[in-house]
């Protein structure tokens, strides 16, 4: 009963808000080019479904490519940082600077460097920059959070550096790596959208481009439909990674009895 209520409560709130929106639009005769009724957004969604789905796929691909790129670079740098304090000292300020610099400020630069013909590469690159930090930070924290007594055992039993890495460091860091990637994927979607807004020239046809396009034509219903799909995509990706993380963690530490 309680569970049912937990599920129903947010749905009910959404339904109420939509009803109020629909009612207000009708009562005050709000023009469609300013704020369309939810029913009109729904119609736009149904009408433009194939286009939106294709764009969602494109955004998804760009976000996932960005995540993969960020993951490779972040893990490699974190690994090297865990091995050498000097390396960490050298890298960390740059990583932090990159993290706090608004991606919007970097976008025109990256667009120029990637070349106007490679808008896709620019978007993926920018999204990767955004997704980089939580993965790097998580991996580094994990690699440094090794039980010192376990490390002593590895020394005592004469482990090679490779054995230390594969049998101690990486498994120890797993929960932190998972957490970092979960945060990273959310940021990769945000990054892919923001980057496409700034760097997109219509060459990439992701959801941000659809929103821009609809905005230029003052088709607010189409815009809202695209925003809705984007929201669903982000929520879906987040949920997927949350499930993956939970499953992996359960395997990692064993289901507690």
């Amino acid at each position: 009963m309680r569970r049912l209520l937990d599920i129903l409560a947010p749905l009910l709130l959404v339904a109420l808000l939509l009803a109020a929106w629909e009612g207000a639009c009708r009562a005050f005769a709000v023009p469609t080019y300013f704020l369309p009724k939810p029913s009109e957004v729904w119609a736009a969604l149904v009408d433009r479904w194939p286009v939106l789905l294709a764009s969602a796929w494109e955004t998804f691909l760009m976000a996932v490519s960005a995540l993969a790129a960020a993951s490779i670079v972040a893990c490699a740098l974190a690994l090297q940082s865990a091995l050498s304090r000097t390396f960490e000292r050298a890298v960390r300020p740059l990583a932090v600077t990159l993290q706090v610099t608004p991606i919007v400020a970097l976008a025109p630069l990256v667009t120029v460097w990637a070349g106007l013909d490679h808008a896709r590469a620019a978007v993926v690159g920018l999204a990767a920059v955004v997704a980089f930090f939580p993965i790097f930070s998580g991996a580094l924290t994990g690699l440094k959070a090794i039980d010192p007594d376990l490390e002593r055992l590895f020394v005592l039993y004469g482990a090679t550096p490779l054995q230390r890495l594969t049998k101690l460091s990486l498994p120890s860091a797993t929960p932190f790596l998972l957490e970092g990637h979960k945060v990273g994927v959310g940021l990769a979607v945000v990054g892919a959208v923001v980057a496409e807004f700034v760097a997109g020239s219509g060459q990439t046809k992701g959801l941000a481009w659809r929103i821009l396009e609809a905005s230029n034509r003052l088709r607010i219903a189409d815009m809202l439909a695209a925003v809705l799909v984007l929201g669903l995509l982000a929520v879906g990706l987040n949920a997927l990674f949350a499930v993956l993380e939970k499953q992996a963690l359960n395997r990692w530490r064993g289901r507690s009895r």
Binding site: D149, L150, L153, Y157, K167, P171, S172, W252, G254
Partner: peptide, 24 residues
């Protein structure tokens, strides 16, 4: 060496923990 805490690898089954010195 045995420490005050069991100092096991939480990700590995009991026998894998015991096997560690031999594996290394």
């Amino acid at each position: 060496l045995v420490f005050q805490a069991p100092t096991l690898m939480p990700w590995a089954a009991a026998w894998k923990n015991v096997a560690l010195p031999l594996e290394l």
